[in-house]
Computed example of a mutant assay.
Amino acid sequence: MQLINHGIARQSILDMIEAGRKFFELSFEERSKYMSKDVRAPVRYGTSFNQNKDRVFCWRDFLKLDCHPLSDVLPYWPSSPTELRQAAVNYSKETKFLYLMVVGAILESLGLAETTKDIDENDGDDHIIKEFQDGSQLLVVNCYPSCPEPDLTLGIPPHSDYGFLTLLLQDEVTGLQIQHQGRWVTVEPIPNSFVINVGDHLEIFSNGRYRSVLHRVLVNPLRSRISIASLHSLPFGSMVRPSPKLINDANPRRYKDTDFASFIEYIASHEHRSKNFLDSRRLT
């Protein structure tokens, strides 16, 4: 879905897009300072999903900024361009607030809005609101350069996001597609809006009530494209499992417990394609 009237200031959005654009305009020597194979690094510059395993690289560059806790990770973020840190701090705080609002609506839709009240400590849903508040957040600034032969490559191949929810900001250049009823549908950019993508963790948590979104990115022969993904989930040390309140005889448990360590181990040894990680967590 696309979310409008979200309350995030237009200037914060413009500042973040412009700061991201300026980062990718830096020399490769400057950008390459932040290259790392460590997926847990507080800042990482690179391309593709898994540069050790992918047979064909994506037609994109990315800058990933760990955002939690900000006080710990901020010193590691790029100091150039000079406006990047402040723009990313403001943007990450505003998108985190928006994410929590959307999560509240999702919990209500699942009948879990009261999970912080009168729940047995062994139930598994206690304090879930606080877990979301203390959860992980990763900003991914994507740059898709113009491509002379766009039919021969993709910005990102079909995949689902591993987290709970992704709040995606697009610039005015089209490229994002989602799979709907077996066909690819272009998500036309709406100014000052966010695309909300359901991730694998929400599919697991909801025991399949919400389905993660398979999506890909096309490239443009004439124009470069910037997008900013704010990926949110539970804390890195948390176990993601179907909510016990959503499991019964009519709706048996459909997924194994999982955590970030399992995901990192998986992508270290596999190409990240389609919903292959989520498929590895399904119960037959």
Rank of each mutant, 00 (worst) to 15 (best):
Y144P: 12
D134Q: 14
D123F: 01
L168C: 03
C143D: 05
G135K: 01
E121Q: 13
K117Q: 09
I128Q: 00
C147P: 10
L138G: 10
K130G: 04
I178N: 06
C147R: 04
D126N: 14
H159L: 02
K117V: 09
F132Q: 10
Q177I: 10
G175W: 01
Y144N: 15
F132L: 06
Q133M: 08
Q170R: 03
P150A: 09
L168K: 05
I119E: 14
S136E: 04
E149Y: 09
D151F: 12
F132E: 07
P148K: 14
Q177S: 11
S160A: 14
C147W: 03
L165D: 00
E172N: 12
G163H: 09
D134H: 11
H159K: 05
D161H: 08
V140W: 00
L139K: 03
Y144E: 07
D118A: 09
L154I: 04
P150Q: 07
H159I: 06
G124D: 13
G155L: 03
P148Q: 11
D118N: 13
S160F: 01
H159R: 04
G155Y: 01
L165I: 06
Q179I: 13
K130M: 03
T153D: 08
L139A: 14
P148G: 11
I178L: 14
I156S: 12
L176E: 00
